[in-house]
Design a protein around this nucleic acid. Structure first.
Lengths: 323, 323
DNA sequence: TTGTACGCGTTATCAC
DNA sequence: GTGATAACGCGTACAA
């Protein structure tokens, strides 16, 4: 790969002039400009971003830290981040942490030492001191971090309420809930909303991990111990497990049991019957996080804003039709 | 962030000495070493990877180019790549191309100019001249590129055959197939294998895009025009659509219609009934690609090897039990 | 065993 | 308008 020096020599000018035409800064005669442009063309020269980074202390890199891209919630998020990053000339580095503090630590260190311009973080180690101390711009996504870190999330409490109201509004009288791990604050919000709106109608509740097989077991246990005609699952994967377990027991969905999920991932439309769910605006959340981040990187104000996006029901076929 | 110079001053040695202890090269007295180590500790010094990259012409970055992380086939692949990259001290840059030549081009350029150490590519632009010319190590994944580019894929032809044999072996007599877009060579292999093993039994075939809604339409069309008792879908998403369409028409799976998918993504176990499918070793494919790449980056031989991994049936409930 | 000085490729500041 | 040249932070001959 040619260097700026070679281009300068080829065009019979100095490197300074070449730099000027590349960056469109300062004066440069028409004559010199075309000579440089030709030389660039001829040598297929492209500026070395590493060298540029060194001088400018900007790498054009954004770190995207998330638990596991394999969890169907995250690909859409990642895609959104990548889209807007790319659109602004940034590249994104994918980091899976498996919710492990250690991995997260290691990544932060590595990313800092390569001078990433910003970080988008989906984590539950809200107490990670690194986040408060570091001077690289950070946006928290789907989780609320402490300190002055801007956050984008969706309204989980409202979502939980909405789920309960939907079920009740469609005739369910005995409500059950499969919760996710209680250690996740965003998940707890959903539960709280659901519980409060369900009131006395809530007759059963059980906790499950997010993996499908765990959820299947939880669902079977729930079915064996309680009877109910409406169920809220902490996310769509769990809801899918519920539907499978119901089928197994010959419980008709939605005739005998109405099910409502959470997240709005594509899985919901692919299962049979298609899942009614509380949809988060996943793509928009990623989009907004990335936009906010880039704004800050490029000199925006350092304010700890809190962006909470609305959720909405996607009605499909695991809840009854009205009227 | 502290620089090597500050560490040197703090430890009362020269930058060369500091560099020596960091990189464990050359002689350095025990005394000096501990002084340096203390200074590093005190200043929380970490080498600037950008500067290091500039000098060494190695960035520690790997570009992962794929169509769309949102397609459920790719997260596992990406995860595998990221895992082994990380394990070897590399970071991976996520690039979605939407199968668009332009985006792909733009990414290659950007990645080259930031001096990525290697590329893992999942694409169909096998004629992209950039791949042949560039001097950064490349591995092609799930697609076969022309030129001397090592490839890792799985045996699609055998997979197609296997699907047909499985269906026939379980009593299906009239076979149908929903193919993916014919422009993808890896997909065509599956079809060929299926067609050849199906022989006269193949009574219907229709092409579909990979998106669920497209597949639904294709399935409906197929149902309206033909009768069959065994169906092979080009991938698991399409299979899920078939199952939903069958349910709609009150066709019982697997009693009246047996369905077999392809890929082995998690979706298969989440739908009802759970999907029998031809599984590719997705994670291992990503793993192997990353290992091969890093081997080459770190000085391995430049050979255009072809690694074709075996596929296998995952039996679930959309095909009949034997006997 | 240690330190000086240069180069990696770029940008920005000055003189001219 | 243009061209030397000094940074940016690091690694390494080579001299000491």
């Amino acid at each position: 790969m040619a260097t700026i020096r070679e281009v300068a020599k080829q065009a019979n000018v100095s490197v300074a002039t070449v730099s000027r035409v590349i960056n469109q800064k300062g004066y440069v005669s028409e004559e010199a400009r075309t000579a440089v442009l030709q030389a660039i063309e001829k040598l297929d020269y492209r500026p070395n971003r590493v060298a540029r980074s060194l001088y400018q202390k900007k790498s054009g890199l954004i770190g995207l830290i998330l638990p596991d891209i394999t969890n169907p919630f995250f690909p859409q998020l990642a895609r959104a981040v990548e889209d807007v990053a790319n659109h602004h000339g940034y590249q994104v580095i994918l980091c899976n942490t498996d919710e492990q503090f250690q991995k997260e630590e290691a990544y932060i260190q590595a990313l800092e030492s390569m001078h990433v311009d910003g970080l988008i973080i989906t984590t539950n180690y809200s107490d990670n001191p690194n986040y408060a101390n570091t001077d690289v711009p950070i946006i928290a996504l789907d989780r609320v971090l402490q300190g002055a870190i801007p956050t984008v999330s969706s309204n989980g409490y409202a979502g939980g309420r909405l789920a309960a109201e939907w079920l009740i509004g469609h005739g369910a009288e005995r409500l059950a809930m499969i919760t996710g791990p209680a250690k996740f604050p965003t998940i707890r919000k959903r539960h709280e909303g659901f519980e409060e709106a369900a009131g006395d109608r809530l007759v059963a509740s059980i906790e499950s991990m997010f993996h499908f097989q765990d959820a299947l077991k939880a669902a079977e246990k729930l079915f064996s111990q309680h009877t109910f005609d409406g169920l809220f699952a902490a996310n769509d994967v769990i809801a899918a497990a519920v539907i499978q377990a119901a089928k197994q027991r010959n419980i008709a969905v939605p005739e005998q049991l109405q099910v409502i999920g959470y997240d709005g991932i594509e899985l919901g439309e692919m299962i049979t019957p298609p899942l009614t769910t509380i949809a988060q605006p996943i793509y928009q959340m990623g989009e907004m996080a990335a936009k906010l981040l880039i704004e800050r990187i490029e000199g925006g104000p350092i304010e700890a804003s809190h962006h909470e996006l609305p959720v909405h029901v996607i009605e499909r076929e695991t809840t009854k039709k009205k009227g």
